[in-house]
């Protein structure tokens, strides 16, 4: 069974279990953006190409959310931060699989994973998250999938 992406236009989960963030690239400004828009968020230009964003990057900022915010039914605490995507100069707001801030440092290598944030009648609802590459293999939630 393929889990449902929380917002398929932004985050695709494929039948083989891999996943990718969908963004845009504007040729005239030379900038990537996320989520995909019709106009470049930096110049307003419309020469936008749909692109799959890098699935790796480095950690730029992080924390952990210790109380469930309004509208959120997933596990607590959970990691939250910013990952700078490899080669694209884009800093993306993201969940982090690591919910212990003391286990992370600036510049940590990060890779894109799926994370369960809820369920509906058809099964699990998943969001994207970034994790340390080694954590991806050892995460028991992911090992089941």
């Amino acid at each position: 069974m393929v889990a449902r992406s929380i917002q398929p236009e932004l985050f695709e989960v494929r039948s083989d279990g891999s996943c990718v963030l969908v963004g845009g690239y504007c040729a005239s400004s030379g900038r990537y953006h996320f989520p995909l828009q019709d106009c470049c968020p930096y110049t307003g230009a419309t020469d936008i190409e749909r692109v799959e964003l890098s699935t790796t990057g480095s950690l730029w900022g992080w924390t952990a959310v210790t109380t469930a915010p309004p509208g959120y039914d997933g596990p607590v605490p959970y990691g939250f931060g910013v990952v700078e995507l490899a080669g694209q100069g884009l800093r993306v707001i993201t969940r982090l699989s690591e919910a212990d801030p003391s286990a992370l440092t600036f510049g940590d290598a990060m890779t894109l994973v799926v994370e369960i944030v809820g369920a509906d009648d058809d099964g699990d609802v998943v969001s994207w998250a970034f994790a340390k590459p080694d954590a991806r293999m050892t995460d028991p939630q992911m090992a089941d999938r």
Binding site: G61, P69, P70, I93, T94, R95
Partner: peptide, 14 residues
């Protein structure tokens, strides 16, 4: 909100 990306204190923390 459902993804946990709407907690204002988490943005302040970053």
């Amino acid at each position: 909100e459902q993804a946990g990306l709407a907690a204002t204190p988490s943005y302040f923390a970053l």
